[in-house]
């Protein structure tokens, strides 16, 4: 049986991890490769590197990082953040990224999704969507790292992007992100029901129970960042817990 996936996200700036970590055994807490190796060793199923570097000059640093990650890590990883062209994607895949995620640039230029999936295959194109619930009770798409609202409903955009060739959805609920009160069950479940590609839930995972809730039929994978970085959730323990809850995950030890 296919397992549910647990994914750790690392925010990257100028080739370094942005948020601190609590791991005392890391020689260099800011080195993404060292942190990624630790997670891989602990049995994380996938990694996402989200680059928040703005300038093109510093993109080279990202390519170097992707290369170092591919050299060291033998599990799949996605690179995202500010990707807006076929050239960006080609460079990242050539350096060893397995998938790339696109967000604002895809919304502003949806044909980019068609182009990318034609050139590189749907399997490596992850649509990242930031969403927030409005007063009417509907979830809408947000852009530019959540700073800009739109009038487009989340489900409508995800459906269009899937038709254009996106192979996976990374859905972040801004209402839940950072709260540690649990993932967004309603919107995640809705998207999972209506699209034929895997859905990764992101935002709000604070306790193992939250992962169990969302992975129980509402999402194919769950992503978190700081709860892993600060050791609030231990990955092997999380997996044992999920197995106890009859949620199939990959065991490595």
């Amino acid at each position: 049986m296919l397992t549910k996936r647990i994914i750790a996200c690392l925010d990257i700036k100028d080739g370094r991890t942005v948020k601190g970590t609590n791991f005392v055994d890391l020689k260099d807490a800011g080195d993404p490769v060292e942190l990624a190796s630790l997670y891989a060793h602990q049995g994380i199923d996938e990694l996402v590197f989200l680059d928040i570097t703005a300038t093109n000059e510093k993109r080279k640093t990202l390519a170097e990082l992707v290369d170092r990650v591919a050299q060291k890590i033998n599990i799949p990883f996605t690179v995202g953040g500010g990707i807006s062209s076929v050239e960006d994607v080609r460079m990242l895949l050539d350096h060893g990224a397995d998938k790339i995620s696109i967000n604002t640039a895809a919304f502003n230029n949806p044909s980019l999704i068609n182009e990318l999936s034609r050139q590189f295959g749907s399997q490596c194109i992850v649509l990242a969507v930031d969403t927030k619930m409005h007063e009417d009770g509907e979830n809408y798409v947000y852009l530019n790292g959540g700073r800009k609202s739109t009038e487009i409903k989340c489900l409508d955009w995800v459906r269009e992007a899937m038709e254009r060739g996106a192979g996976e959805v990374l859905l972040t609920s801004m209402d839940h992100d950072g709260t540690k009160q649990g993932f967004a069950k309603a919107i995640t479940g809705l998207v999972t029901q209506h699209v034929s590609v895997p859905v990764i839930a992101s935002g709000g995972g604070g306790k193992p129970e939250h992962f169990a809730e969302i992975l129980n039929g509402l999402a194919d994978a769950a992503l978190a960042a700081s709860v892993f970085h600060f050791g609030e959730i231990n990955i092997p323990q999380l997996k044992s817990y999920l197995l106890d809850q009859n949620i199939l995950v990959r065991q490595t030890h």
């Binding site: 049986m1 296919l2 397992t3 549910k4 996936r5 199923d45 749907s122 399997q123 192979g167 996976e168 999972t192 029901q193 034929s196 590609v197 895997p198 039929g217 194919d220 994978a221 990959r250």
Partner: peptide, 16 residues
């Protein structure tokens, strides 16, 4: 060919 909306195509992930 998946008849279950929760079984996605492509298969992406870890399987036995």
């Amino acid at each position: 060919k998946s008849i279950d909306p929760l079984i996605k195509v492509p298969q992406i992930g870890w399987n036995e």
